[in-house]
Computed example of a mutant assay.
Amino acid sequence: MRSGWRTQQSWRGTLASLLTSQTRDESPALKALKLRQTITLRKGSPLLPESWWQSLSENSYGVRTCLVASSPCIAWTMDLNNDGKPEVLVYDRDQREITAFSEENEQWRNIAGFSCRDRISCPDKYSAAFDRAIQQGELGTIEKPGRDLQIDGQRYKLDYYGAY
C-alpha cells in the first residue's frame, strides 16, 4: 500500500508540474484566481494578505500542487520568526506538506517547509489527528534549542543534523 501511495504522490507532483507549465501563458490574475479557489482559510485565521495572493501569480512553486489536490489546501497566518509580522503557511493534505512564506522588502518568498512524507515522525496512524489539529488551529511554535553563530557581526546558520 505504501508504494502505491508514493506512486500517487509522485503522479500528483508530476501533474502539478505539467499544469503549472501549461498555464504559463495565463494572465497572473487568472492564475491567482485558480489558486484562491483551491486554497481555503483555516478556521479562526485572519484573512491572508492580498499581497501574498498577488505574489502567487509570479511564484506559485510552493503551492502549485494545490491546483491538483483532491482536498483543498489549508492556509493560515502566524508569526514564525518573532518579527511581529505574520507568515503565511499552506498545508497540502495530499502531499502532507506545509510551506511557509514570509514578506521582506515587499516580496513574498518561501522560507521554510515541513513534509510528513517518508518521515517516522508522521506515521499514517496520526494523519487524521494531524489534519484535524491544523484545521482547528491547535498548533503553535516551539523555540529551537540550538543557536546560530555570529562572527564579526554576521549570522551563520548552523544545521544540527537531527541533534534536537
Rank of each mutant, 00 (worst) to 15 (best):
L15V: 06
S17V: 08
R24V: 12
D25F: 00
D25C: 01
E26N: 01
P28F: 01
A32N: 04
L33M: 09
L33V: 01
K34A: 07
L35V: 04
Q37K: 12
Q37T: 08
T40V: 10
K43T: 08
P49A: 11
S51I: 02
Q54C: 01
S55Y: 04
S57H: 02
E58D: 13
N59I: 00
N59M: 02
L67H: 00
V68T: 04
P72A: 15
C73P: 06
I74E: 12
T77V: 13
M78P: 03
M78F: 06
K85N: 08
E87V: 00
V88Q: 00
L89D: 00
V90P: 00
D92P: 02
R93S: 11
R93W: 06
R96P: 01
R96T: 11
E97H: 14
E97P: 02
N105C: 03
E106G: 04
Q107T: 08
R109E: 14
N110A: 05
I111S: 07
A112D: 11
D118H: 08
R119C: 13
R119N: 15
I120L: 13
S121Y: 15
D124G: 10
K125Q: 14
S127Y: 08
F130M: 13
F130R: 12
Q135P: 01
Q136K: 15
L139T: 15
G140K: 06
K144M: 09
K144I: 06
G146A: 12
G146S: 14
G146H: 05
G146W: 13
R147H: 03
Q150W: 12
Q150T: 14
G153I: 09
Q154Y: 05
Y156C: 10
D159F: 12
Y160T: 08
